[in-house]
Design a protein around this nucleic acid. Sequence first.
DNA 1: AAACAGCCCGAAAAGGTTTTCGGAGTCAAC
DNA 2: GTTGACTCCGAAAACCTTTTCGGGCTGTTT
Lengths: 344, 344
Amino acid sequence: MAKRDSGTPARPRTATLTDVARLAGVSVATASKALNGRDHVHPETRRRVFDAAEQLSFTPNTLARGLLAGRTGTVGLLTSDLEGRFSIPILMGAEDAFGAGQVNVFLCDARDDTIRERHHVQALLNRRVDGLIVVGSRTDPRPSLGRNLPVPVVYAYAPSDDPEELSIICDNVTAGRQAIEHLIATGRTRIAHISGDVAYAAARDRAEGVRAALADAGLSLVGDVQYGSWSEGWGRAATGLLLDRHPDIDAIFCGSDQVARGVMDSVRERGRRIPEDVAVMGFDNWEVLAADARPSLTSVDMNLEEVGRAAARALFAALDGSPRSGVESLPCRLVIRGSTVSLS
Amino acid sequence: MAKRDSGTPARPRTATLTDVARLAGVSVATASKALNGRDHVHPETRRRVFDAAEQLSFTPNTLARGLLAGRTGTVGLLTSDLEGRFSIPILMGAEDAFGAGQVNVFLCDARDDTIRERHHVQALLNRRVDGLIVVGSRTDPRPSLGRNLPVPVVYAYAPSDDPEELSIICDNVTAGRQAIEHLIATGRTRIAHISGDVAYAAARDRAEGVRAALADAGLSLVGDVQYGSWSEGWGRAATGLLLDRHPDIDAIFCGSDQVARGVMDSVRERGRRIPEDVAVMGFDNWEVLAADARPSLTSVDMNLEEVGRAAARALFAALDGSPRSGVESLPCRLVIRGSTVSLS
DNA sequence: AAACAGCCCGAAAAGGTTTTCGGAGTCAAC
DNA sequence: GTTGACTCCGAAAACCTTTTCGGGCTGTTT
């Protein structure tokens, strides 16, 4: 692969304000004022400056501007687990909310490693980010970055363990309640709950909502909460055990869509129809799994994009001098498909 | 939620080099030289400066440094489709390769919108990024950003339509070949191919490799390539048609793991055993789908993280004055599981 | 004619760092 | 005592933009 003899095309040096000023025949001060719409610039002069800027395709150096203003218009987005599918929508929501303004986002993945995280935080602070959003991989509280940072911080999805800081999370307890209320509304009374790893706060929180909703309706869970892993295989296994012991089950609420897919397979193999005999509900509303299931899977959507947007807005508010604190939880949303109600 | 009466804790002003110099009793010039390991600084002086820096927990302002050096140590990562699952691993690989150095990554999602993309590119250039990585959502060539940008650009996953630019992509043709060679190696001869949307270059490229490998082995495809959509539903539907017409099929290579899941369901429902009667192969090696299938699904992994890393390295090379050009394709990798060979 | 108001524009400083260049100081040699 | 070599340090410029402040100019009023 020889070097191209045409050579590297000379990269155009980007024009500076000085160049514009020279071309327009004014001082840099005037050029700056003209371009930024400041007062006391003659319309004719302003036009000349704009023409010059256009001609040189000038755009201001954000670094220099940030150095002077003390604000850079950048924020750091610190994730602990990028490949996990929860971070992404949050990240999209945040990027979206910022992108609408003039803010750009530094992305850092700490890989759930504290050392790496500290390293990244330091790097971000050196770059003088205006604020930080910390996205967790689980809903369990996570260690705070510390309260003495020079910029505001918002925690998303996973709350900080310091209650004086601001955290935006999903309301998993109410989500469990919503799911059960939906099942009850469709006439189910013998309801079981197959969840994931009990070590996850998300699993325990949802179970709490489940029990509360059942109690309110004068019902109780069929069997205990089946904790296991967040996998299809667990869903299949747990369903077998559960249906053997409680053949009269008419609804199963699952801790994730993966679990639900396993549950559906197992239910169908035992000759029960979904949703006529047994209703099945998932959690996460993971489109590829839920939409293409047979029948399509009713699920709970955590509105993660909204969590990201809310975190971004909260950071804006803090930057504007109205910091909030405490844990703010956002509601989840039911997505009803064919696995709980016959769609005809 | 009343404002806390403790008030916002005064954010510590970050120390500057001037502060360090003053505390150490030297000039800023000396302080800079001492901290950066330059020559001609007395060891004792250097120690004093380091002590002062430590005491003030000084870290240099990267903005100021970048303004001066002309290099900011930042790159822009432009994705067109963040929620699609292909961008993420690439992004992780790139972030990883950069993170090892001192480079930070600006993330921008253009949402497959040209206007938005131009906007983001401009914003990134204003921030004086040192380079750009453009990650596509499909393997089809995409419009170039233009060759007259002031910084080097590397395209990843989706190549640029300008062959003079550098693109790092996956070798989908060879991937199709690899898949078929594996099936043949396990003794299959009646092989079908159920793929996704024919509008995707990925689907057509893989089919090309499939045909080439079969031809080399003196075989030919059973039925035509079944193009459809990248969904489970299509996998189920296509399998039905195919098995009706060609009952002697002993292997099905699928265009994606989703399609493969549908295919597996359908094959099993027709009473055929996997892999004894029919081998099934997927594509993408999407863990959640492949690892938890019954049996676990043999698939092709596009090594997307490696694509990201390679793109990052290529950008480094370009920054160091050794730009490359043309399309460089990286090999895919077979991940063999239970759907093609009995694991006992 | 002098003073004054009002409008534009330019010089300069600021922001934090790095680098260049010259100067101050020490010591040895002639 | 003067020169020279050498070591260490500081002043200043550079990067690019924004903002403040003062000055020049025109036209009007006393």
